[in-house]
Design a protein around this nucleic acid. Sequence first.
DNA 1: TTATTAGTTGATAATCATTATCTATTCACT
DNA 2: AGTGAATAGATAATGATTATCAACTAATAA
Lengths: 149, 149
Amino acid sequence: MDNQKISPETRLAQMIAKLKENEFRITPQRYAVLRILAHSEYHPSAESIYEQLIADYPTMSPATVYKTINLLKKNGEILELEFSEMSNRYDGNRPYPHPHMICTQCGAIVDPPMHDFEKLKSKMMEETGFTISSFRLDFFGLCPDCRKE
Amino acid sequence: MDNQKISPETRLAQMIAKLKENEFRITPQRYAVLRILAHSEYHPSAESIYEQLIADYPTMSPATVYKTINLLKKNGEILELEFSEMSNRYDGNRPYPHPHMICTQCGAIVDPPMHDFEKLKSKMMEETGFTISSFRLDFFGLCPDCRKE
DNA sequence: TTATTAGTTGATAATCATTATCTATTCACT
DNA sequence: AGTGAATAGATAATGATTATCAACTAATAA
């Protein structure tokens, strides 16, 4: 599984290629959303993407951001981190399951180095009779910055 | 960490003891909600708890179910599994972080045997500089029943 | 070039789980 | 029995996300 960092430009090109491959249009609005997702390290929310775009695209609607996110989801080009007490967050760089570190104070979400969960997965499958297709692993705590206070 | 199954009656008594200890009243409504949580293996939603109670407690309100759940949360006697695309689910038997197997077809949520995450946790802390206080680990797939189809 | 058609945008309304509000009720304790 | 605090339940509010639909845009056909 690829885990080394891909450049934002390459990632953007990948996302565009996938959408084109499936015959979706790359509109200026979609391009703008894809660009932010490809460049973001901090797992933005839909609202945060919208706020970054509204300056350059005054007619941009939150609905369009949500629609583009859902389009990327359907095409497997984005990972959605669901929350119920706050907005969902998105990872456009690594659209496959991987662990996240979530700061309970400032809300930062960062990617730790990927570890191998295959052994754990197969053990769980044996013990429960499930077939496992995906997983979600979040660690909650304080990020280095918030620890200092 | 205790991981062997506790009887529903014992678990109910534990929850009641904790609430009394913190000077909360054990009303008939609260008792009913606690009883369901102590007896449930399937990680019920608030709505599901309400539906089970409305027959015996015709005046029961969903608000009371939610309030009781929040009371238990504040007292550390329940584990909340947040979702954004469906209702939150609750574990009153093991109110500490542990992995879950979630069937994407029928929605069943079951507890696999608890494994040791201490090594993984400390490795993550080293590599990211976070202090980790909690975690969430969900495996998604098909349960044995849904696999058969 | 114009017409046709499907895809897309953006404003707005709808949804739905959960929380907040407020009044009536119940409980604990004098 | 009386008093004050806690609780229940009805209802409204919240907020993120989705649905709806008319206007707009782009691609292709005539």
